[in-house]
Design a protein around this nucleic acid. Structure first.
Lengths: 223, 223, 223, 223
DNA sequence: AATGAATGAGCCTTCATTCAT
DNA sequence: GATGAATGAAGGCTCATTCAT
């Protein structure tokens, strides 16, 4: 059944399968054969619809982030006028959600973390855009929370503290590759909630402490 | 020079080269050819000395962690009687150092993060031991810092917050694959110091906040 | 523009495009995709209209030679009563023209040379006819020029001398793949003229010399 | 038998097989599989010994021309002081020999003609050297024969007349792909001799006629 | 009548491993 | 003990062809 449909369908099945496989195994370990196997189509279909494995990967990225942006909008969908603490909560919720979500949405976080650990050079353009947007938004937020005296370096370190907590924790909890002595028993939604609350609480305190440090340095140097 | 010395030498050169390559490219992207190329020996040497790529990888893990334990002992080499805050600082210093160190030492952290993101199933045994030891030590420390009322889950989340901050930040800063708009200009030692101080300050505050939360929950539930 | 006119149009566009591509790249290097691309139609059209790449190639041959025969009639259109020297000039002009002509006409010579160098087995029938006709006409002409005593072998050799001079020179000058140090700067018409005159002059002398040889052999053997 | 020999042997068998196959089918139609089949070795051997199909092809060229130069030295091995007529005969003998020789030697001519008709861009360097050397030697010789008044263009045309006669005739007679009504019954040596004599006689006369033309033009323009 | 979609066979290449010395 | 040579399995890609509409 479902042969020679309208062409969009097969293309879509491939894209879906590719999202899963790339997220699960990374660019190199993912094989066109497995992707097409899951999409129930021929190996040549990848080249027919996307031109190459590389270009398929780029499309996967685009789609993963588009979907993630819809399901978990940056800063939780709050406007720029919302209080920064709320926007931090929203941001953390967004990043955690993208990493933990068991469906298609969850691929975005995994793809991103993979590229951070072992970049492929295959998608520089796409990746650069996605990362830069996120980075800029977070930096702005951090600067609000840290106060006007924070240096670029301090802003960066704090940003990294928050982002990497979210991504790494989220993914490890979800991939089920935590060491066997670590288990969570709850629904995905609850998990997202729990992680978001923990990281928000933890990070807000961390940010405050950093801010105090900054202000003390300020006093010292002006004394 | 020094032709085929004593057989241990070759084996050792391979191990050294393999550490670099595996840390840099990950298990699958690393090729036996490149490893032997850097070790200035024949491709067959890997199988001769180690039996297979898998077994070489396992040896690499063992050696990387042995060396890392020596150079950056867990908890900074402090005894169990040292105050927990100091031991936290020591632990963070240790993890960051293992990730950032540019020489052989740095491989341990990178290998570990890689396995977290994309596990290989090749070294379950070795990995399990290394991770379990670290995990247990940190959990104990966290429980001290969080107080006796902390649940296992809370201990785990806090542990993860600290560990992943260290590893992910460290590695990303070191691999030089940060987005181009992010740059640090300092020596490795300074970098380790800066990161350690930031993460320690950030985390101590985060832990305190978590502890307060726990105590408040305690009050509520006993009310 | 002009959507799917009448079906013959598409078939015709394919044929035209195929002539170009086959002449330019040879049977194997020519791809159905490029042909259909130039013909602004679908890949499936080739098989639909011609059955297969092979059969398309055969049609291309037929058409190329029909057109070439019209534009450059054998022996320059002279009747059998014209003096043989004039008919030789006509023949050379015809072969050179077929090879050098930049438009559709030029394909015939290129296709022919290609088949001589790397036969395809795809079009034995078609090719055989085209070649045999040309060969017979030239052999007759050569025999006239060489005299009645010429052996078959001598006739053949002289024929080959003339034919291959025309084809190979013409094509190499036109394909632009001459070594970079060789350049001609003139219009196609002038080029055809120049080549024809050179080859005619060169060949007439060659033929005369061969004839003299033959007559001397004759004398010797009858002595 | 003959497994795991000394490595040179297999490499050599591949090279030999590749010469045949490339000469017979051309670069694109030749498959690594067939080459290795004839060389009685594994497909991977090509990459092991030569790196790629391209590089193998380049080696084939080099070897074919080296061997050809030895077996049929340019200008027949005559020094620059020999009379130009003798050197022309030597040159023709050399080119014909390279084309007709049934053994390994014959590949050089076929490879060359193939590249003239459908260049590959794979071996620009190698090819350029081989062709340029031959071209320069012949041009010099032609200029001697045509006299000092000959223009570059006239020299070129005459060169092409001679070269292409040799190559195209030789190859077509040898490949056995002449139309079925054309047959020569003689040994290779005799064939080379027959062709050489015919082409030399034919060309010397052609050259003389061209020279006379040149001198007449000279007179006219100076009148 | 015509075409977008899909496919399978075949090609070149890579790579961990094994063989023979 | 060590290595150069060799291999088979697998991967990505191309391309003529076929299917279903």
């Amino acid at each position: 059944m479902a042969r020679r449909k309208d062409g969009i369908e097969t293309r879509d099945r491939i894209l879906t399968a590719a999202c899963e496989v790339f997220a699960q195994k990374g660019y190199h370990d993912a094989t066109v054969e497995e992707i097409c196997g899951r999409a129930k189509t021929n190996i040549a279909a990848v080249n027919y619809h996307f031109g190459s494995k590389d270009q398929l990967y780029a499309q996967v990225w685009r789609r993963a982030f588009d979907e993630a942006n819809e399901a978990y909008p940056p800063e939780g969908g709050l406007g720029p006028d919302a209080p920064p603490e709320a926007r931090l909560h929203g941001t953390i919720h967004s990043i955690v959600g993208r990493a933990v979500d068991p469906g298609r949405i969850g691929h975005a976080g995994k793809l991103l973390l993979r590229e951070m650990v072992s970049p492929t050079d295959v998608i520089d353009q796409v990746k650069h855009e996605a990362v830069r947007a996120m980075h800029e938004r977070m930096s702005r937020l951090m600067r609000e929370l840290l106060g006007p005296e924070a240096t670029d370096q301090q802003v960066l370190l704090t940003t990294l503290s928050v982002v990497h907590q979210c991504m790494a924790i989220g993914i490890r909890l979800f991939t089920g590759r935590m060491p066997p002595f670590v288990k969570f028993d709850m629904s995905t939604e609850q998990l997202v909630e729990t992680l978001t609350n923990h990281i928000t609480c933890f990070s807000l305190a961390g940010i405050s402490a950093t801010r105090e440090n900054i202000e003390m340095e300020q006093l010292e140097s002006s004394a």
